[in-house]
Amino acid sequence: MNTKTARLSSQQPSGPKPKPLFSRHNVFLYGTLFIVAMYYALPLYVMIVTSLKGMPEIRVGNIFSPPMEITFQPWVTAWSEACTGLNCDGLSRGFWNSVKITIPSVILSIAISSINGYALANWRFKGANLFFTILIFGAFIPYQVIIYPLVIILREINLYGSLAGLVLVHTIFGMPILTLLFRNYFSSLPEELFKAARIDGAGFWGIFFKVMLPMSMPIFVVAMILQITGIWNDFLFGIIYTKPETYPMTVQLNNIVNSVQGVKEYNVNMAATILTGLVPLTIYFISGKLFVRGIAAGAVKG
């Protein structure tokens, strides 16, 4: 018997404390996590299997059973054939509308807010506090109050119903929270770095692009995730500020799913819903880790 086993066999505590796999703590913790995970995963499962079934199979009524005969026709229909109103070109139109809305809105809102946040955090200009207060106040104004005035404003500047109008709305509504996010992040960066850059003769834009931006990728990723998912999922502004040709995907999805004519094609509806949710879902999967890291980094200091 070597010394190691000799020590083990004696009853004295030694080395790492043993952790039983099925302790009450573990069972409770992982049990809860499992139940919660099921609660969220099950509907997704039902959606996927239903979207792969034909209508006859769906009418049998067993929603949990896997498809006996896999068909992709519902997906094709949802993407390019389903009818909303007079148009019968499926969700594809809404998809491209949403792309055209989301990309400029995300770029514009992040560009403006990051510069705002940088100016507020590092260049304490006259009236900065007042400006910041107003901006934060803006974050708490309920949407309902602004909707109608905004309709009138957009109509007056001839943007009502256009994609550009909706982009403008998204850009403005994204600003308060994004500015706050960026300001907090930039204030958390060491102030001495900013001072060093000023002594090195870099100006407002020089410091922003050459010193601050390269250090701020995490927060830009966070802002992008927030904005892409937020704007992609938006329904309210989409339905109010656009017209049928320019409806975003979410509004079109609603119109397909809630269409009153004909039989309800559950498989098409499921496929359409998954298609619409695919973009934010992909974003989360790709960047979940970065998201958490960025949020943590921004939250450290106020």
Binding site: P190, E192, L193, K195, I199, P214
Partner: peptide
């Protein structure tokens, strides 16, 4: 005058090197 025009160089406690 702006810091860059004062003919000074400064060294900080936290080094303040540009990390990228």
């Amino acid at each position: 005058e702006e810091p860059k025009d004062r003919g000074i160089g400064m060294v900080f406690q936290s080094y303040a090197l540009y990390p990228q």
